[in-house]
């Protein structure tokens, strides 16, 4: 079996807003191996959620994927017809949303969610069998199988998120995308849910894309990290490289600005300014107005991602010399 599972090449998403066009995701490329965990880190408006949705082609209008390739095991998902794509969602790539309450139907019992999902993709499966599978899945995520007859509101936030995870693995997908799966939850429940995700990932041998605003979570739980800023990928590398030798000034700034509970005394450093308005991004590099080490050409031209060492990509002029300057 080939190791590489998903290869994203130059994925670009645009929104048509009333005041103009917004490039929410600007030519993002990355690869995902089997059973690997990729963290997509960024602030609100960085395009990380749009990136996640575009991987299953579920961008809400007026958004549109306007370019790039999504190679999943050799097939370009962007070339598939909508019916074929529907088969990919859930079966090949599953999605876990931030708010489990709004993604479960409040008038449907927990078990029915599984029956519907399973029978949509496997019409031959009987109701009874689907329910039996649901019980096993719920057990796997730490919920008693009797809960199959409960309605979503009878479960706590943490349990609902467990149900969402059980649903996402129901069809044994090869990739699970989790968009801020724990943001609505308290820290103890968050740790449990993240542990659970790790667990099912091991048991079911899936790859996981964890989208989060919290760099700490990504550093703790992922193999690779992709840092997004203003719709662009600014750095993409193994977690060790991100932590030990971050190259983009934004990544460095983020690392210096997050409090670490294990350090006795810590001086946090802030990143000055605030993220740009995507309708009106700055000329040149999108980060230069906030960058402590910007140079003249940052304001003139937009840097392109370069590979500074195998698997470490950065979009910054300061590291262009180190990489191959092709353009």
């Amino acid at each position: 079996m080939e190791k590489q599972l998903l290869a994203v090449e130059g994925l670009t998403v645009e929104y048509w807003a009333r005041r103009g066009r917004v490039r929410a995701v600007d030519s993002v490329s990355f690869t995902l191996d089997r059973a690997e965990t990729l963290g997509v880190v960024g602030e609100s408006g960085s395009g990380k959620s749009t990136l996640g949705l575009s991987l299953i082609r579920l961008i809400p209008p007026p958004g549109r994927i306007i370019g790039g390739h999504l190679w999943l095991e050799g097939t370009d998902l962007l070339k598939l017809r909508e019916e074929e794509m529907r088969n990919v969602r859930g079966r090949k790539i599953a999605f876990v949303f931030q708010d489990p309450m709004t993604s479960l139907n409040p008038v449907k019992k927990i078990g029915e969610h599984f029956v519907e999902l399973i029978r949509t993709h496997e019409p031959k499966t009987g109701r009874e069998e689907a329910l039996r599978r649901a019980e096993k899945l719920l057990n796997d995520v730490g919920i008693q199988s009797e809960r199959i007859n409960d309605y979503p509101h009878q479960l706590s936030g943490g349990m609902r998120q467990r149900v969402m995870i059980a649903l996402s693995i129901a069809l044994n997908p090869s990739i699970v995308i989790a968009d801020e799966p724990t943001t609505a939850l308290d820290v103890i429940v968050q740790a449990k849910i993240l542990d659970l995700l790790k667990n099912v990932q091991n048991v079911y041998a899936m790859a996981l894309i964890l989208i989060t605003h919290d760099l700490s979570i990504a550093l703790e739980r992922c193999n690779k990290i992709l840092v997004m800023y203003a719709g662009q990928m600014v750095e993409y590398a193994s977690v060790e490289n991100i932590y030990n030798k971050p190259q983009h000034p934004y990544t460095r700034g983020l690392l210096k600005s997050i409090p670490n509970i294990e350090l006795a005394e810590q001086k946090l450093e802030a990143i000055p300014g605030s993220p740009p308005d995507l309708l009106n991004p700055p000329r040149g590099c999108r980060f230069w107005p906030r960058c402590p080490s910007s140079i003249g050409k940052c304001r003139e031209r937009e840097p392109q991602p370069v590979e500074t060492e195998p698997g470490h990509f950065v979009r910054c002029f300061l590291h262009e010399v180190a990489g191959n300057e092709s353009n």
Partner: peptide, 23 residues
Amino acid sequence: ALLSAIPVPNPDRKRRIIELKGE
């Protein structure tokens, strides 16, 4: 338990989370 559950921005540090029952 609360302290043990806080994510630490350090990939090398493998911490032990104190498990609490239920919610």
